[in-house]
Amino acid sequence: MPFAGVDIGSVSAKSVIISDNEILGYSILPTGADVEDVARRVLNESLKKAGLTESDLERIIATGYGRISVPFADDKMTEISCHAKGASWFLPETQTVIDIGGQDSKVIKLGENGTVISFVMNDKCAAGTGRFLEVMSRALELSMDEFANLSLKSLKPCDINSICTVFAESEVISLRAEKKPVQDIIAGIHKSVAKRILAMSTQIGILRPITMTGGVAKNLGQKKALEDTLGFKLLTPKEPQIVGALGAALFA
């Protein structure tokens, strides 16, 4: 039986189609302003990849920030429960999930079968999120890919002291004016996000193995900074950005 999970995030919309415990197709699109429209488009695109139509679907579950704006969904679940479920499908040994998305980051401790035992979520501030990294990459006039990869070349990350996105941006501009190597500035930015995640993790006491999910898991510089800060390696699924949508499809 085919099921769909639709994850409407603040930055990107994701949809995954599964059947008999297998991923048949998925799609990722920028969220944009019209949530309902993107939800429909991302679902259709993933259905096309799976070679199915909407009438083939048994159930659709919506998740993510825009979950309440998906009129065709049969039900909704929060992205926290969905990332937990999806991560444990990809990597069943997972005990903790670190999900860094566009506007929030979460640390989730898992129980059996990917259930949530406890979680922490960043507050409404953008610090420690994908949005923070986007603002920083714009301040440095780099694409997200360039930004993510340059960081890996740094040997001496700068210190970014401000947690606040606005202040951190002005710190980055000052560091540029001081002619600090750009890879060190980026590595410093990644380190500051990592420190924020570490602070969140200590609140619930994380267990290993840890799986990193969300779009920011594709940022290898950020992943490395997190591994350096936490002191151990992180697992990442093949496509970390669809983990929430996959979890939703599994709940369906």
């Binding site: 929060t78 926290i80 929030d104 949530v116 035992i117």
Partner: peptide, 14 residues
């Protein structure tokens, strides 16, 4: 609303 709702809903699911 979005942030707090997500927390409370997750707690409800938990």
């Amino acid at each position: 609303p979005g942030q707090i709702r997500t927390r409370i809903e997750t707690f409800a699911e938990q």
